[in-house]
Design a protein around this nucleic acid. Sequence first.
DNA 1: AAGGCAAGCAACCGCCCAAGA
DNA 2: CTCTTGGGCGGTTGCTTGCCT
Length: 227
Amino acid sequence: MEGMGWRVMEKGWRKGPWTPMEDKLLMEYVALHGEGRWSSVAGCSGLKRNAKSCRLRWVNYLRPGLKKSQLSPQEEGIIIELHALWGNRWSKIARYLPGRTDNEIKNYWRTHFKKKGKPLQNENKQKYEAQFNYNQDLQVQGTMNYSTSSCESEVHPTPATMQETTAGTGSMVTDWQQQQNPCMMAQDVARWWEIISEDGLWDDFMWNLDHDYPNQAVMEQSFGPCF
DNA sequence: AAGGCAAGCAACCGCCCAAGA
DNA sequence: CTCTTGGGCGGTTGCTTGCCT
């Protein structure tokens, strides 16, 4: 560690894993000054960490309301669905999973889905289907905002989808209103899933997601011009 | 029991963008 | 308008841990 660049003092900044004492200092700082004033953390708190490191530590680990538990099948389904819509927009996806961080979702995706040549089959697919059925139940109950018609309507993942995970961020709807119109429904995802997994399109699709947006050609082939 | 290997995760890096001077 | 600075984001790295041989 010490000799490998970890924890070396570069411009006086500490690096590497955070100690409990550093966490305590950072929490005290945020309690006093609030979030978002990262550039002055070092000066005010005595922490020898740069602004970015402090922000990251706070956002990914110390922030109140973070869930430490494993992702539920419902959350997994949400990730799958939103990743299909937006690609690697982790922070955007994270906004719909209260208590989860973009880093966590990103790591989860990479370890659980990306490394596998054909992810989401069998066990994972079952999990997704559980989520799908769950969404359908909600839809029946009238708590879903999913449109069942077409792309013309406002269609987006709803707070209802994430009801289980909602921890009262309060900003979800507002955030959502600023989002694009994804034009995809749970049913579409399920159908797309079948096509991708059975026709061997998955690899192409996945690797194209490394770029900004999902493979539009594949999507259009499956669903028409929505994408 | 010990070594190797892979998965998981915390943290860093570099780039981009927006706001302010 | 241009430059600077701070914050945010996605990609990547490398340590830790658990499993397998």
